[in-house]
Design a protein around this nucleic acid. Sequence first.
DNA 1: AGAACATGATTCCCGAAAGGTATCACTCGA
DNA 2: TCGAGTGATACCTTTCGGGAATCATGTTCT
Lengths: 292, 292
Amino acid sequence: MFSLDQLTAFVAVAEELHFGRAAERLNMTQPPLSRQVQKLERAVGVQLFERDNRRVVLTEAGQAFLGEARRLLALVETAGDLARRVDQGAAGTLRLGFTAVSAIRTLGPFLRRVSDELPEVDVILHERVTSAQIDGLLHGELDLALARPPYDPHLLDSQVVAREPLCAALPADHPLTALDRPLTAADFAAEEVISYDPVRAAYFHELTIRFLAGSQHRITQRVQQVLTVVLLVAAGRGVALVPESARDLGVPGVTFREIALAGEPVELHAIWHRDSANPVLRRVRAMLSEHQ
Amino acid sequence: MFSLDQLTAFVAVAEELHFGRAAERLNMTQPPLSRQVQKLERAVGVQLFERDNRRVVLTEAGQAFLGEARRLLALVETAGDLARRVDQGAAGTLRLGFTAVSAIRTLGPFLRRVSDELPEVDVILHERVTSAQIDGLLHGELDLALARPPYDPHLLDSQVVAREPLCAALPADHPLTALDRPLTAADFAAEEVISYDPVRAAYFHELTIRFLAGSQHRITQRVQQVLTVVLLVAAGRGVALVPESARDLGVPGVTFREIALAGEPVELHAIWHRDSANPVLRRVRAMLSEHQ
DNA sequence: AGAACATGATTCCCGAAAGGTATCACTCGA
DNA sequence: TCGAGTGATACCTTTCGGGAATCATGTTCT
């Protein structure tokens, strides 16, 4: 097999049609250049130059080979580019988990920023509930998740990407919608409250429990997804606490009301595996912490 | 810049994910293989493998580079093929000169044989009168000519590719068409004979002169092309001697008659420059002498 | 816990290959 | 016929790649 040095030697001679000048261009002397070309000819099995003591001409085969050689060398030049871009996280794929509700206000702008700042990065989207996203991160099926606590902080790391208040979701014809002040836990005393799965939707479960702590209430349903909760409210099955962005789901028959603030707002986290090897993740994290 | 050996080393390790086995596959020992991969990583500027003392894994960048490396090596494998085919005349271009009349019976089958036996050869056709073809051969504008003598045998070489009888071309209403025997020179005694340019169509000029030698006749026109001759006959401007294939020109108003054989038949030659460097020419010549 | 094993990296040595200098062989032009 | 120009060759030096031995480290089995 021939070597790349032999190819560059050949191309130089083919362009100069003069061994001396070609050698000068390659910063070497003429004899080793002649030998390299001879070796290449032996390796390919074809005479590439017709060399008279007076002039050098490409043979037909040499002309054909010149094209191949140039293509090959061009490919060599650019061979490392993609690898370097991938190494710096500027190219590659990001497997991103998200929940239906997180998507409403956060996913779109996030994807737009990625495609602006890292145009060679492909984002593969996986819609999953939070717990399934955490599993995905731990099993290496996802690189980044837009989800909510809790998660194992030894293995996973995170950053808050959005905060929003919790609010009450009421059927449109519910008496509480008439009140002109933030609702309190006491207002829910007589209500049937739709709440969340303590395991699969632990975050909203906690928030709901905390808000209602000490008041009378009945919890009738425990579901996983905010969307489901809103749909149940619309169906008149009770009232619920949801993140404010649930307004944007546009489910008819549901009215949202401010509540008397019960501690910190709802947080959406970007979560990743502490020792993910994906370089794109580094870049995306840097992008996230950059502004905000 | 990296070397092809480094690429093959990298691909082997990437496929085995084990330096020892990869080294075995490459018929070498493990230490130099490790070094080659390290060098490649330095040359590309990217870490290609994540190597634990227990296992070897491709990095994201390594996976990207693996694709490039495979493409490059595949190209190297096939780089010489085209050059070798060109060298053996199995690929390339043949610039072929021909005359309108030679084309009728000879050119079609010839082109068909070339595209059957040398499918990678492109034939570029140049229709020229014989003398222009000879010039083309001498100036290196043509590789092969389908033409007729004379030519300079020091510089050009040839081979007969077709023989056919000379015959008489008469206006359809001419009295001689009534005769039921081969025509002789004497039959032309009273005729106006259309003949050929002594310089540019020397071959037919010679044949005509030789046939008519010693008889009475009047030569009224001297033209270069057989086709022109036949058109003049059709126009009633006289009679002429033409190769039999001129029948196939399909010019109306012309009748062809056998003549009393005056020596050898009309020959069509394939002519080439003695020191043409085009390898396709070698193959085509071999093809021509192969069967006939 | 400790020993044996597995595996990639490192070190040192040797031989092959590449580059440099001097020279040869040949052609062309004066 | 001689000198200039050009590619090939001979020979030497340097560089580079491969091999054997060894190291460092992590895993596994007793």
